[in-house]
Simulated scan of single mutants.
Amino acid sequence: MSETHATVAPGAPVFPPGRYGRRREPGRRRPILPVLVAVVLLALLGLVAARLYNQYGDPDYRAEVITYTGITDSSVTVDFRVTVPEGGSATCLLRARSHDGADVGHLEATVTAPPGERHVRSRQEVPTSARPFIGEVLRCRPAG
């Protein structure tokens, strides 16, 4: 017959003393280490993201096509505006595509803003190998 203690709730298993090691005291555990590791990891990821954005992101050089005109069998004229740092210059890659979406011409154009201004408006003729349907500005980056 097993011995029952007055401190043990009815229906709870009774373990022989010292046989299974020390039992944990029930209570609230505070996960300080996992929270601390998560905070440090998020901070490191934020620093890496900021550094990569500063290195590869280029928000100061934005281009927008105003219009494309002068479509012939051998060229298209692209009128565009570029936002650069004050008095800066940019090299922009222009592309012409045919009606089926194929690239039919490319041109790199360098534009420079007047001193104290950030916007440059330019008109460039892109030579093509077939009749173009559209003229675009793919990207602009610092001139150099």
Rank of each mutant, 00 (worst) to 15 (best):
T128G: 07
Q55G: 08
H99Y: 07
Q55V: 11
R29Y: 07
H99I: 15
T77S: 07
A90R: 05
S74F: 01
V78K: 05
R30D: 00
E86N: 02
E136R: 10
S75Y: 06
I71M: 05
E86W: 05
C92P: 04
V35I: 15
G144A: 09
G87R: 07
D58F: 02
V40F: 04
A143T: 09
T72M: 03
G144C: 01
T7E: 12
V35H: 02
G70V: 06
R141P: 00
D100I: 14
G105N: 06
S98H: 06
H106I: 10
C92N: 11
T7C: 11
P34V: 14
S98A: 15
L41E: 01
T91G: 10
G135R: 05
L138A: 12
Y53I: 09
P16H: 03
V39H: 03
E117C: 05
H5D: 10
H106E: 12
G135T: 03
R121T: 13
E117V: 03
G101K: 08
V40H: 00
T128P: 00
D73F: 04
V65Q: 06
A130N: 02
P34K: 11
V111Q: 07
P132F: 12
V137E: 07
S2L: 08
H99D: 13
P114H: 13
T110K: 06
Y56L: 14
A38L: 13
G18R: 00
T4N: 06
V78H: 02
E25Y: 08
L41D: 04
R131E: 10
S89M: 04
V14P: 08
A96P: 00
V37D: 02
V82Y: 01
V37F: 12
F15N: 14
V126M: 01
A43Y: 02
G116F: 09
